[in-house]
Structure formats: C-alpha cells, structure tokens
C-alpha cells in the first residue's frame, strides 16, 4: 500500500536524472495498477458477499411492509425493540451453547491434537484424516444420526432402560446436553485443525529444554506448549464459537422445548413468518453481539500471546 505514497527526489534535476525519474514514475504507476488488479477479485468478493448483504440486511431491518406488497425503508426501529424484548432467552441460549460447546471442543481437541503433533510420528496425516472422516458425511445426516443414538429408546439408552438401569425420567435427547453435545461434535475439526497446525510448528527442542530445566510434563505443556500454540487456540475458538453460536440445526434436531436458539428464530422469522425486518434486526444484533465477544476475547489474550511470542 506504500506504493501510493509519492516520493519525489528533492533538489535540482539534471537531464539524466529526469530521464530516470520518468521511468521511475511509470514503473510506480505500473506497480500501482498491478496491486489494484491483484486486489480486485478480493474486493469484489467482499463487496458482493459481505458488504452488500449487510447493507441490505440493515435496510431491511428498518423497513415496513410485507412480502406481497414489497418493503419500504422508513427508518422504523420497532423490529430492534422486538428483537430485544421478545428473544432475550434465545440469545442467551445461543451464547450458552456457543460457549459450552467451544470449551468442550477445546478440552477434547487440544489433547488429541497435542498427541498427534508430538507422538503421531509418520502417521500424523493419517490420524488427521481419521479425525476428519465423519465430516465427509453431510452435517444434517450426522446430526440426525445423533438423534437415533441419543433417543430414549435408541441404541444406547434403550437397552439400559430395559435393563432398569435408568430412571424413567432420564432423557438426553431434547435437552441442552444433547444440543451442546451435537454442537461440540460438529465443531471438533474446526477446533482441532488450527491447533494441530500451531502445535506442529512448536519445536520439540523446546520440550526437551523445558524437561532439562526441571519442568514436569504438565508444567511444560502449561508454560511452553500452550503459550506457543496460542495462535491455533485463538483461531479454533473463534471458528467454533462463531459457528456454534449461530447454529440452529443441532437445536432443532436434538433440542426440545425451552432450548430455543436465536439462529432458529431468525430462520423461522425469515422462512415461516416472512417477517423480514424482524429477522434482519435479530441477525444484526447477533452479529454485533458476536463481534463484541470476539473483540473482548482477542483483547484479553493480547497480541503478544496471539503471535506465540512472534510479535514485537
């Protein structure tokens, strides 16, 4: 981007220098053009798939009208009022499920990624492929199969119940536990891959040095490995948290009464109630809420940690 800065040679300019200056200038122009061309696809992409939808969404959220007669942007804020007053429980559920499944996914993915990165040897790639294997199946199918697994009379709880090992009021399906479980499962690879990538780059020599300096295995993990893999943890947590908080498939298929999430509300307002302004307003509120959480999170971690000590 520094190419836009004009740096002109000061002082008197003789002929040979002038000649050189012209060629410098045309070179600079060409370079600037190159940069613009290189950025163009990305900028278009951003405009088309990010800016445009958000602007549309924002406009829709302050509109009135209906699907049949069309919408007019009137600056009506009642949708926002409705979003806050009517759907607070759903917002909270989404955040709770998002946080819970992110924490769980982190606790499961980190040790697994650690093991593969440091003890996987030549089979590392094979292990990663195995982790990803279930994810070649459509997420809908996977979630539905969890329905069968967790059902009161499904493959696990059915036999246990028949043997009288479970109280009659014991349920997993249609409870928050099932939703969080489904979300955790679905997010696992998105947590694991960036962590694995970060751990792979941690020099095993650091682990030996730490052991040489009287650290136990656990202390080495805590003081050396975790800080150095922070960029991976950060990326994994972001990916998982954002998509888990916005998810509704798991809630619809595995949740029950009283587990409503904001994603499901947005979906039904858009597709069932056709209340576009309300759906748009809730979407934007969710986005802003996520943004605030993410910013607070990255601020709390600090840049230095994020860079694994690679920043200034």
């Amino acid at each position: 981007m520094t190419a836009t800065a004009e740096i002109r040679p000061a002082g008197r300019v003789g002929r040979p220098e002038r000649h050189q200056r012209y060629s410098e200038k045309s070179k600079r122009n060409r370079r600037r053009l190159t940069i613009i061309f290189l950025l163009l696809p990305g900028l278009l992409w951003l405009a088309l798939f990010f800016v445009l939808p958000i602007v549309t969404l924002a406009m829709m959220s302050v509109s009135t009208g209906n699907v049949g007669q069309g919408w007019s942007v009137v600056g009506d804020l009642s949708s926002y009022q409705q979003a806050f007053s009517g759907y607070l429980p759903e917002f909270l559920h989404s955040l709770e499920f998002g946080v819970a499944s992110t924490v769980l996914a982190l606790l499961i993915a980190y040790p697994a990624a650690y093991w593969i990165a440091f003890y996987g040897g030549e089979k590392k790639t094979a292990y990663i492929l195995v982790v990803l294997l279930p994810f070649y199946v459509s997420s809908l199918i996977r979630t539905i199969s969890w329905q069968f697994v967790l059902a009161d009379n499904g493959v696990i709880f059915g036999p246990l119940r028949r043997l009288g090992l479970l109280p009659s009021n014991f349920h997993v399906l249609a409870t928050p536990v099932a939703v969080v479980g489904g979300l955790t499962y679905a997010q696992l690879p998105f947590m694991m891959l960036p962590i694995f990538a970060a751990l792979e780059r941690v020099d095993p020599g650091f682990l030996e040095a730490s052991r040489d300096l009287y650290a136990s295995r656990w202390e080495t993990v805590r003081r050396i490995v975790v800080p150095l893999s922070m960029p991976g943890i950060f990326a994994g947590v972001l990916l998982t948290f954002i998509s888990a908080t916005g998810d509704y498939v798991n809630e619809i298929l595995l949740g029950g009464t009283g587990t409503g999430v904001v994603g499901a509300v947005i979906r039904s307002q858009f597709l069932v109630n056709l209340d576009y302004p309300l759906a748009s307003a809730i979407s934007l509120v969710l986005m802003v809420a996520l943004l605030i959480v993410v910013l607070a999170y990255s601020k709390a971690l600090g840049t230095d940690d994020l860079m694994g000590g690679a920043a200034v």
Binding site: D203, E208, A209, S210, D212, L213, P227, D304, G309, A310
Partner: peptide, 13 residues
Amino acid sequence: NTVFQSYALFPHL
C-alpha cells in the same frame, strides 16, 4: 544441564 545446538530459547519468554 544442556546448552542445545539450536539454543532452544523459549521464544515467548
């Protein structure tokens, strides 16, 4: 104690 060939200094400390 060991002084490692690549030093293995902890980069975040």
